[in-house]
Nucleic acid binder design. Structure first.
Lengths: 239, 239
DNA sequence: TGTACATCAGTGAACGCGCGTTCACTGATGTAC
DNA sequence: TGTACATCAGTGAACGCGCGTTCACTGATGTAC
């Protein structure tokens, strides 16, 4: 990103998005105020209108980024542990990783998490019925879950007859737990306890899907608690 | 409620709450604007300050009411079907009724549902740590669920070892599903389909809790779909 | 039973704020000849 | 290679809005004597 040589910025659109993302990260979607964004970048508020026809368009871009970040967090959690040879165990590992990634991102980046699911009306869209912008987890995340669930069926752990509503139930659980952890009564819990709730919740989901009532293999490694603080985000460098 | 005889209103506090509730019903918590509330009641904005020290206090009252309404909806659903003699079947009936009540209220009164879980900072409270105002379903609703889960254990349908996280998982599912239905991708579904999602979801929860894999007894009665439109609310008569 | 007066519950005007957005403009850049 | 000019990407001032809240006030009510 250039050093702002003078009158022309060079990459104002991205700079605005980055600043807006930082605001969303700190204060949620309501904190994304166009004038403040311009202020941060060091540009007049009017300049933003060269790159976004209105506030909600900027908002939309931030939301997209937040959704991408969520999916990245899920992918990162997938990559954090090694794949195991046994297909059944591998499918379970993936399921757990996706859930952990989702919920840990929610805890680490509550502002971005809320932004990812915020209601935005982009320019052309008129409440667009039937084509909701608020996809499950940015669509890509939903796809990851769907694949893992398919794998669970293929491996024989998930009854095909119970496949149909599996992602809705799983998504509902994860989304609701995130709300309880962020805004609800569970928000008062200390970080460790919240991690435990997530861990046990995920184990319940596993049990629900597979019918396997045996307890979870091991408690959540403490080493990962460090990750609960802040999620590193490559695209959010300002200026 | 008196007919507003002249200068003195007589019951302004309640009238303001009622009007504010109507705004919340139609537009969610953000729609509760003090000046607009006063306008509706036909009183100067200043008058509100005789009864609420600030906006957030009025908001708090509305939120309380919305939480009560949610619990009422759950209770009403409980009362809608007759109790059955068999304790196991009865516990399941209650579980289903609570879930249906919760989710149907969310669909019928999205504005109030959101308001029930909105973040409000009442006068004295300073982010009050450890004592979150956002209780599970207004606390009373949580109590109802807890009792039903206890009953499931007593009856032998729910393994005591799996009792511990049962309400968190169940609450998470319900809350998340409500979000998906109201703001998420499921909001585009037609009413019937959404009711089916609820019905199947609840059946999955039942299966998850009890381990009973047999399918649900009967599909959701169509007759109840009428209820999805609007929830009758006794306390919200304006003026 | 009638009067003085404290208190209660309203009023209207105004303040200050910050927002999204528009306007007419100007400095910088790139291209045609 | 140098110049004219269209276009691009900024600027600063201003508009209009609606909000929560405060101020000094006034009409209605209730109570003491």
């Amino acid at each position: 990103m250039p050093q702002r040589p003078g009158y022309h910025h060079g990459d104002l659109a991205n700079a605005l998005i980055a600043a807006a993302t930082q605001l969303a990260r700190d204060g949620g979607p309501e904190a994304v105020v166009l004038r403040e964004v311009a202020r941060i970048v060091g540009v007049s508020a009017t300049a933003a209108y060269r790159h976004f026809t209105r506030h909600s368009d900027l908002m939309h871009a931030v939301k997209q980024g937040a959704q991408d970040d969520l999916v990245s967090a899920m992918r990162a959690e997938l990559a954090m542990t090694a794949a195991v040879p046994d297909p059944s165990a591998e499918a379970l590992r993936q399921l757990r990783a996706l859930g952990h990634g989702y919920l840990r991102f929610a805890l680490a980046e509550p502002g971005l998490f809320r932004t990812a699911f915020a209601q935005t009306n982009k320019s052309g869209e008129h409440e667009a019925p039937g084509q909701s912008t608020a996809t499950m987890a940015g669509s890509a995340g939903y796809q990851l879950l769907a694949e893992t669930l398919d794998e669970l069926v293929a491996v024989g752990m998930l009854d095909p007859g119970r496949r149909r509503y599996a992602e809705i139930v799983t998504c509902s659980w994860a989304r609701g737990l995130a709300m309880l952890l962020l805004d609800g009564p569970l928000s008062a819990f200390p970080a460790e306890l919240r991690d435990q709730v997530i861990f046990h919740g995920l184990d319940h989901i596993r049990h629900y899907l597979t019918g396997d009532t045996r307890p979870a293999p091991a408690p959540s490694p403490v080493a990962r608690s460090a990750q609960l603080t802040r999620w590193p985000r490559s695209s959010a460098t300002i200026r």
